[in-house]
Structures are given as structure tokens and as C-alpha cells.
Amino acid sequence: MNIIEVKQLTVDYGDDRGIFDLTFHLKKGEVLGFLGPNGAGKTTTIRHLMGFSRPDKGSCHILGKDPMKEARSVQKHIGYLPGEPAFMNNMDGLEFIQFISEMKGIKNSNRSKELCAYFELNPNLKIKKMSKGMKQKIGLICAFMQESDLLILDEPTSGLDPLMQKKFIKLIQEEKKKGTTILMSSHLLEEIERTCDRVVIIKKGKLVAIENIKILKENQNKIFVLTFFNHETAEKFMIEPFELKVMNQTQINVTIQGDINPLIKVLANYSLANMELKAQTLENSFMHFYGEDSNV
């Protein structure tokens, strides 16, 4: 059984706003990235999964249950971080964490203390005096302290500095080893690349792609920058059957998809001054789905 099942989910706000016939699933122990430009419908989808809204058409289920009709039963299994967490500003951080713990029936505070230390958070400050990053840490602690088998995280590193973003990635990787099932929307492509098994990409409320991260990496183009000792050798290499781009008289870029061994075998016949592999990320693989929407 899939942990999350979304089938033809539709919410039409008019003017092409909302989500339309959205279908995807999430298997047990899988980490699924949820990507799309601002306004694509990611938060709307997550709110329906949490049972906060009723769709115009279609359905979503968590553990086989309707999240609206069986909200209490569903939500007790979920560690949830909303995109814009609501806090009680008259409380300090510790009071708020304890308040959420009581709501969720968490009697042992050891995990929340561990998470406060991990994210280097002093929870004794009044929430109204906290920065956005500190508030985000409280949201993360409340989501993770339950030690749920399912996490639903909407923009989890919003407001965090680069050091804390890296700590968050490590935390997700640890949860993944435990077998935790995770749905995570994010604007940070490195975050998705380093943690997720698959990605669901939506644009203007519609599904545009479901991609396997491992396969994307394997099929990713590799660009080798070859520098020859002289123009004659470079010119000779230009007849080889590869995708080539001449950069100058002695430098040629070779683009390879998949197996690089054919290139390595050919290069054994040439003397090179230098060979460099350009650092590649999955950004280009993702970004072509967005088209004119560059604001991810």
C-alpha cells in the first residue's frame, strides 16, 4: 500500500489558479521532493493532504484514509511543518514546544531537547523576539520530535542559514536510514538532490514530471574540458565522433551522456596538457521543466 496516494486532485480558484488533475504517490520509506515555481500549488496540495481543505474533484489518502474525514487518526501519524508556521508570540520557545508536545501526547522530552541542541537553538527566548530562522527551527523541532513514520515538510529550510541547511540535510538522511517516509517541498535544488529518491514537479497547478533522482544523475551530461598542447592535435581530435564545442585553438569541450569509457579509450591516442570535468548539478535537469518561470 502506498503511504500517500493523490488521484486527480483538483482545486480551482479561477484565473488558472489552483491544482488540476494532480496524481502521484509516495511509497513507504521513500523521500519524495515536491518542486515547482512560486504559486504552482505545492502548499495547496499539502494542505489537502493534511485534511485542512476539501478538493473540488479527485482525492488524496494517507495510509488508506481520507485526511479530512479521519483527520485525527491521520494526523497523529504525521510530523508536519507548514510553509508558514503559526506561533503564540506570548510564549517562549520552550513553552511552545511543550504545548505542541502535550497536544500530540508526547510525554518524553528527550527528543525535543536533542533537536534544540542539534539546531543550536536557545528555546527560552520569547517567540516574538526570535528571528525567522529561530522560529523555523522551532517548527522543525515540533515536526521531528514526534518521531513519526511520516513527515510532511513545506519549505523546511526557509530562513535557515547555510550551516543549518546542511544540518537539516543530514537530519533527513538519518531519517531516511530509519525508513521514515518523507514528502518535502523545497526551493533548494541541492537539498532535493542530496535527500530525495524521486521528485514530483508541478507548474501552474499541473503535473509536468515525475523523475527518479538516481536515473537523472546517471543520465546527466558530463562536460570534459580538454586542453591540447597545440592546435594541430586539437584539430585532429575534432574528427572524433563526440559532441564537441571548440573553445579556442587548443581547448575543446566534450559533452558525454552516460558511459564515458569510449571517450577515455580515444583519449589514450592523444597527448593532453589538461583535462577537467566541469562540476554538474541536477539544476539544469530540473530547470528545463520550468520554462519561463525562473523563480523556483
Rank of each mutant, 00 (worst) to 15 (best):
C142H: 12
F87G: 08
A86I: 08
N110F: 02
G258Y: 02
I201N: 11
S73F: 07
E191F: 01
K128R: 15
I100S: 10
Q280G: 00
E155Q: 10
E232A: 11
Q249W: 04
C60F: 00
K28T: 11
K7S: 07
G41I: 09
F229L: 13
E232M: 03
A268M: 09
G258C: 05
R17W: 08
R198Y: 05
K236L: 03
E243G: 01
N212T: 12
C142G: 03
M91K: 10
A40M: 00
M164A: 06
N90L: 06
E147M: 13
H187P: 00
K128I: 05
E243Y: 07
M287P: 02
E292H: 04
I264A: 12
Q8E: 14
D149T: 11
T227R: 15
I97E: 02
S53Q: 08
Q165H: 01
D92I: 03
G14Q: 14
K135Y: 02
N108K: 10
D293Q: 12
H187N: 06
I202S: 06
L22N: 08
A71F: 03
Q98F: 00
S271W: 01
E70R: 11
D21F: 06
P156E: 13
I252D: 04
L26S: 06
S271H: 10
K28V: 02
E102N: 09
L22M: 05
K278C: 01
F144R: 09
I78K: 15
F286A: 07
Q280W: 04
F34Q: 11
L277Q: 13
N253Q: 10
F96R: 14
V199I: 10
I213K: 14
E191M: 09
L81F: 06
Y80N: 04
P156M: 14
Q165A: 11
L171I: 02
K170N: 15
R198P: 08
S271Y: 03
L140T: 12
M1G: 12
G105Y: 05
Q173C: 07
K76I: 03
K107W: 00
G51Q: 01
I223C: 08
E193C: 14
N122P: 10
S73C: 01
S109Y: 08
N230K: 14
A71W: 04
P262L: 12
I138M: 10
L263P: 02
N89Q: 06
L115D: 03
S158Y: 00
G51F: 03
K137D: 02
H288C: 04
L81S: 02
Y290G: 02
S101G: 15
